[in-house]
Design a protein around this nucleic acid. Structure first.
Lengths: 219, 219
DNA sequence: GCCCTTATTGATCGTTCGCTCAATAGAAGG
DNA sequence: CCTTCTATTGAGCGAACGATCAATAAGGGC
C-alpha cells in the first residue's frame, strides 16, 4: 500500500492507526516508531504530528481494538429472557470468540498484560460484570435459586463461566500467540467444546450455589 | 540480596540466571541488560563475561525454566495402567498446573510466543505427543475403540484434552499475565473444573472417534 | 496560473541500547 | 608478605531509540 503523499489528516490518521495496530500486534508494544513509519511508507516525524508521543498512539490502539469493538448487543443478548441462559451463553461466546480470535486483538491484549497495563484486567472486569453477572443471575432464576440480592454471586460461580470461556480463548491463543498452525476450523472446535461443556453446567451451578449457601462445605 | 563481590564463577552464574528469570519475566524479553545488572548489584559488562550475548542468556533461561522443569514422571504417570485414564489425566493436570502456575513460567512463555520464538510451540508439541497421545490411546482402549495404529488419533481428539487443559491454564494467565488479583485458591478452582469436565469426557470422546470413523459426519 | 495553507520531510538533539577492553582489586598459594 | 590469577569494574564504542524543528512541497481557492 504505497502512500500517495499529502493525504487529508483524517485519512492519514486512519492509515497510521491501522498500520500501528498491525505492527505492534506483530512485534509487541516495544516496537519502534521508525520501523512503523517505514512500513507505512512515511517518515517517522510525521507520526509525531498526529500523536504527541508513542504512548498516546498505543492508547489510541486500545480504543480502536478493544473499546470500539465491544458490541453493546452482547449485553442485550445475555439478558434476552426469550432464550434459556445456556443458549444465551452459547450465542454470546460464539460471537465473542469470533470477534477476538484475531491476530491483533489477542496479541495486543497479552502484550498489554505483560507490560502491566490495566487494559486486560479492566476489559475482563467488563466481561465479568456486564456479561457473566447477568447470565449467572438468569441461571439462578432458572434453577429456582436465590437472587443475587438475597445471596451475592460467588467467585466460584464466576469461575464456572470463566472456565469455559478460558477453554475457548485458549484455542485462539495457541494459534495467534504460541504460533501453532491450527489448520483446524477453530469455530467448529469451539462449538464442540460448548456442546461438551454446557449440558452439565446448570447442575454444577446448583451444586456450587448450594455449597456456598450452606457455609463452607466442600463438594 | 547484596552481592558480596568476587563470587565463584558457578555461584555468580547461578545468581545471574535466577535474576534474569525474575527480571525478564517481569518486564518482558525486551528488558535491558543494564537494568538487570543494576538489580543484581553488579555491573553490566560482567553479564557479558558469563553470557556472550543477551540472546544466549535468554536461551539459557529457556533451558532453566522449561526444559529443566519438565518432569519425566509425567510421561510415566499418564502411561500407568493401574489407574483409569481420566484419573491419570486428573493427576497429571493437577501436578502440571501447579508447576506452571508460576509468575516466571507463564509470563516468559507468552512473552516468547509474542516474540515469535518457537519455544511455546515446541513445548506444547511435547505435551501433545508425550502426554496427550498416550492418554488418548488409553482412552481408546478403555472404551473398546480401535487403537491409534488402526485409526490415527484425530485433531478433534487432541482438542478434547487441550480444551480442558486450556481452561486450567487460563486460570493462571488471568492472574499472572492479565493482572487480576486472584484472591481465590487457584488449585481448588482447577480441581472443581476437573470435577465438572472429566465425568462426561469418555462419552464425548467416543462420539468424536465414532464421527471420525464414519467419514465426515457432524455431531 | 499564482498564492497561501499545511502536510510532509531532512537534519538533528539527547539518551540509551548491546557490547568491548584495558585497568583494577580481591582471594589463594608459596 | 608478596606474587599470581582472574573476577570485576570504569570508560567508552557505534547504533538506534523517542522526539523536535526549521525547511520543503503538494494541493485548493481565487
Amino acid at each position: 500500500m504505497p502512500t500517495g503523499r499529502r493525504l487529508s489528516p483524517e485519512a492519514r490518521e486512519r492509515q497510521i492507526v491501522e498500520g500501528a495496530v498491525a505492527y505492534f500486534a506483530e512485534v509487541g508494544l516495544d516496537g519502534h516508531t521508525r520501523e512503523l513509519a517505514r512500513r507505512l511508507g512515511i517518515t517517522q516525524p510525521l507520526l509525531f504530528r498526529y500523536f504527541p508521543t508513542k504512548a498516546a498512539l498505543i492508547e489510541r490502539i486500545y480504543e480502536e481494538v478493544y473499546l470500539k469493538r465491544w458490541d453493546a448487543g452482547w449485553e442485550r443478548m445475555v439478558r434476552d429472557t426469550a432464550l434459556p441462559c445456556l443458549e444465551r451463553f452459547r450465542l454470546f461466546e460464539i460471537d465473542y470468540q469470533r470477534r477476538i480470535d484475531d491476530y491483533s486483538w489477542l496479541r495486543i491484549f497479552v502484550s498489554a498484560g505483560l507490560k502491566g497495563f490495566d487494559l486486560p484486567s479492566r476489559y475482563l472486569g467488563l466481561v465479568r460484570e456486564r456479561i457473566f453477572a447477568p447470565l449467572l443471575e438468569g441461571m439462578r432464576a432458572e434453577s429456582g435459586l436465590p437472587s443475587p440480592e438475597a445471596q451475592p454471586l460467588s467467585a466460584d460461580e464466576f469461575e464456572l463461566l470463566f472456565g469455559i470461556h478460558g477453554a475457548l480463548v485458549y484455542v485462539g491463543l495457541r494459534s495467534r500467540v504460541y504460533g501453532i498452525d491450527g489448520t483446524a476450523d477453530r469455530d467448529a472446535v469451539r462449538a464442540a467444546m460448548l456442546d461438551a461443556a454446557l449440558p452439565g453446567l446448570l447442575a454444577t451451578h446448583r451444586r456450587v450455589v448450594a455449597a456456598a449457601a450452606s457455609g463452607t462445605e466442600r463438594r
